[in-house]
Design a protein around this nucleic acid. Structure first.
Lengths: 560, 560
DNA sequence: CCATTCCCACCTAGGTGGAAACCT
DNA sequence: AGGTTTCCACCTAGGTGGGAATGG
């Protein structure tokens, strides 16, 4: 009954410190805007996550920990059926939402995973990351907030992806389980992705969120090293037999010491000056095609670039029915659909023609992006739990392609989390605001356009891992929508001195305006608009210094 | 009759050398991908230019030189009518296509302006650059190839924009001339745009084309300095009376010496270790709206982002006529319009639905993007000259808004060019291939959808300046289309070792394939796809070491 | 009147998952 | 048969000039 997947073990994100010897004053200010800009605030479909919730926080922690443990066993015995066993992880009490410095001298450097709520959502299901030859971005992208660095010291920030174990995994669709499919045929070569803004001063790094948005995963070995400039090879996949290898990622803060060198194909230098922080919830499994439909749904629901697939197949029937009687419904339908459903609102605001199209066009629009759309936000219960949420995302899709994948195991990196910080995060003002998306789903439950949920899928939800999250309230700022998140009031959240400039320099001054869909604001200067990103970045979205006023999904773990 | 505009004086692009003291080995490899990635290969609508031609090369040089001289006079006397006078420039023989090191110790550092052909095209007319509050990119973007640096030395590459004089200018539409409108009310504060990849080793800089694609021009003072991260304020425009101030740009190569500092709001440090290279053809006038319709047309014709405006107003009548009898024309119209007209082809290939839309939709599509479209590519004469080309771009557009603008004057920076290198560039294999876009225009001349050309506009074309370019053959690689250019064979032009990786890492392997529209290939990893840019950059498009195999429009000037 | 600003349609560039094709 | 690749529709993000609106 209780459907259990191989609980992916927590891998920690590591951070090394590696300082550039007095790079004089000339910071690489301008370069920042770079692709992998420090700033983001984007894709935090992420941030809009729902697990930041109040009293359940610590619980989530625990769930993750046990999760991690179970994996270790799995990996060791290789038994395909023993996956649900609960093991103890090598890590002490590794909070799922904290950064654990490894290998460095204490100090008080702290690394906070941004959007950890979303990471946890994925982690509960079993995070999958697609890899392609051309390189595929990670969806919850790695985004961290760093504090406690020496403002005047130069640092490299790097991230690597490390295999959790040496197993190959396989996802058995009919049982919705992970199974060990043997040993990986080759070890994953060490790959280090150095943040493009490196080196930069501690001040620069701390001023904004450090994002690895543009990092890509690939199974292309290329001509070995160096080339996958922005691409990391998480799994060799040399043999077609090895579709996916469980990998984990490390996030590093490296203080640059004279004479030291950082290479993308070498392991991060250990020792003093280098700290590694690991985030268990960032463990993922590389696949060439999604195995778990729940992952697919969550990706679609949260990744802005997959918006085209949202709600597909869910309330299609409902909408088709509406379409049938379109002539009668038109007035109310328009009001309800275009104005109340987020995402549609965006189109409406940016293209008025949308309203004036032919009926056929309108119908198309209705049918496509709205099929399966949960419904109207700002309505419905706020008490939805993780479980019920997954409920909806796990509706069966008969056209699932090929099912089989892997689960990662823990890589001991001595994590240590202080639940206190979690409490702090939970106490942020954002906690007051319910998550619009959750409301949507709730509405869906009410019958607007839900589909029947098979027992098998229900069972899938009751595995031991996610229970830690169950019952958590979902919280997010009022502007959060479809995974986009930013502070309730940009002016209040951002450092006031630079806001005006950022806003004016922005595209069409929409920043301070009321963005109908809530996407415009967050999208600015975040994704690929590298340079603009620097214009507000952390100033607009970040929370340098104190986390109290920050993003909804930021989870902080104080190490001091 | 001979319509003369104030010949804009040549400003040189400067390059300073400023080395980072042994930044150890850790290059900022990965950061490169950054927005302002070194790589481009993009927007070289640029490269697809047509002046690379054979025997006319040296002539162009001369034309530019005299051009520059004339400006100086203008600026000094302020007479609106003496603009066509030919003066001697402060620069010795300043080739329009070379880099002149200034203020540095000799060595043999060389800076070559990429896409100088296009720059010259604009320069002949009188380059205008739009400035907006949010910041506007320069269209021919600054892109240079640097050679002669110490591979192991760390350098900053910077660029600044300097006013040519202290005058305000005004464009008189009826006479199509530039007139001095008084003195600028305030000096332009020194602004330095440091390339985001700075600092980097000489090897890094020389390995690829250094692009300032993402640089933006703005008239927004913001809260003074620092903020316009990637934005340079070319003109104060403090008073609405000062719409535009002639400015010039400098390109700098700065060797980082310990203790030195580079600030965006300070002038570039002079002295040894700092070299400045100036390119006369990069002089431009900042405007808030285009004044000269020829500039508008050239921008539209060459800037991929303005493709939507291509041919607008030219063959509109022709298409409207077609639309009138749409019911009868439909079959042939579709064949002719969507498949033969570039730009439409793209849509067709990427969205088959396009073909299956309602008639109304189709008509709309026809009317909008096709208005004035020249016609079918790959047909027509290849012998089009500069003059005749401008012919077409200067067709009158009754709805021209506000006409008035400026012309810059020369800023003496001791340029010196060696025509030999130009010859080398002209001798590249690319010379064999005609430019697709030119064919289009030729077709237009044949009457497909051309408009009557008024005498006044014709006269505009016969000013003394462009004659140097007249008669040049237009050359471009076979893959060049709509201003996109890359070597005839990526494999051949790029360093073989890394090509395979670059190609495979590319998006959907379209790189080596036949891209229907010709845009996919070149667009990859260039514009904002920062990180990807590093994947092929110079390896794919550049010509590290020898210019012989390089891009079609590269013009090299050896200083040694 | 004229320079500037703002909004818009129309592009480029590229990220997403689905599904068919491909390969083994 | 199953993993992988390729192509596709559909998005986001943002660059472009036109033209109306704005403002002196």
């Amino acid at each position: 009954m209780a459907e259990k997947r191989r609980s992916p073990c927590a891998l920690s994100v590591k951070a090394h410190a590696f300082s550039v010897e007095a790079l004089i004053g000339a910071e690489k200010r301008r370069r920042t805007a770079a692709e992998d800009a420090l700033s983001p605030g984007y894709e935090d479909g992420t941030d809009a996550s729902d697990l930041t919730g109040s009293p359940g926080g610590p619980r989530a922690d625990r769930a993750c920990t046990s999760d991690r443990g179970s994996e270790a066993e799995c990996a060791s015995d290789g038994s395909p059926e023993s996956e649900d066993a609960l093991l103890e992880s090598p890590q002490p009490a590794a909070a799922a939402l904290c950064a654990a410095p490894v290998g460095g001298t204490g100090e008080e450097t702290r690394v906070d995973l941004q959007g950890s709520d979303l990471w946890k959502r994925f982690h509960e299901i079993g995070t999958e990351m697609i890899i392609t030859k051309a390189g595929r971005r990670m969806f919850p992208a790695m985004r961290v907030k760093i504090t406690g660095l020496d403002p005047h010291q130069q640092y490299y920030i790097a991230m690597d992806i490390i295999p959790v174990d040496n197993k190959r995994y396989r996802y058995v669709y009919h049982s919705s389980k992970w199974m060990v499919a043997g040993n990986a045929d080759s070890p994953v070569p060490p790959r280090v992705y150095i943040h493009p803004d490196s080196p930069a001063s501690g001040e620069t790094w701390m001023r904004q969120v450090v994002s690895f948005d543009k990092l890509k995963l690939t199974n292309n070995e290329l001509d070995d090293q160096g080339h996958p400039e922005t691409i990391i090879c998480p799994s060799p996949l040399r043999s077609f037999f090895t579709p996916c290898t469980s990998t984990s990622r490390g996030f590093h803060v490296i203080r640059k010491e004279c004479g030291e060198e950082l290479s993308p194909v070498r392991a991060i230098p250990a020792g003093e000056g280098t700290r590694t922080f690991s985030f268990p919830e960032t463990v993922f499994t590389t696949v060439t095609a999604y195995q778990n439909q729940q992952i697919t749904r969550l990706k679609i629901d949260r990744n802005p670039f997959a918006k085209g697939f949202r709600d597909s197949g869910r309330n299609r029937m409902g909408l088709e029915a509406l379409v049938e009687s379109y002539a009668f419904w038109r007035p109310s339908l328009r009001t309800l659909t275009f104005e109340d459903i987020p995402g549609m609102a965006k189109q409406e605001s940016t293209n008025n023609e949308f309203y004036h199209n032919t009926d056929k066009e309108t119908v198309f629009k209705l049918d496509q992006p709205c099929q399966g759309r949960y419904s109207v936000p700002n309505k419905g219960s706020q008490e939805l739990t993780e479980g019920s949420e997954r409920h909806l995302t796990s509706s069966p899709r008969p056209h699932a392609p090929h099912l089989s994948r892997f689960a990662p195991s823990a890589r001991p990196t001595t994590p240590a989390a202080d639940p206190r910080t979690l409490s702090i995060a939970l106490a942020t003002p954002q906690s007051r605001f319910p998550l619009p998306e959750v409301r949507q789903r709730t509405r869906a439950k009410e019958g607007f356009c839900s589909l029947p949920l098979p027992a098998s899928q229900l069972g899938y939800l009751s595995n031991p891992t996610p229970q830690g999250y169950a019952g958590l309230r979902l919280h997010t700022p009022p502007y959060s929508l479809y995974g986009y998140t930013f502070p309730p009031s940009p002016r209040l959240a951002a450092s006031p001195d630079k806001m005006a400039a950022a806003a004016t320099a922005n595209h069409q001054s929409a920043f301070l305006g009321s963005s109908p869909s809530g996407t415009l604001t967050d999208s600015l200067g975040v994704l690929s608009g590298g340079q603009q990103g620097l214009l507000f970045d952390s100033r607009t979205l970040g929370l340098a210094g104190s986390q109290a006023g920050g993003g909804a999904s930021q989870v902080t773990a104080h190490m001091g």
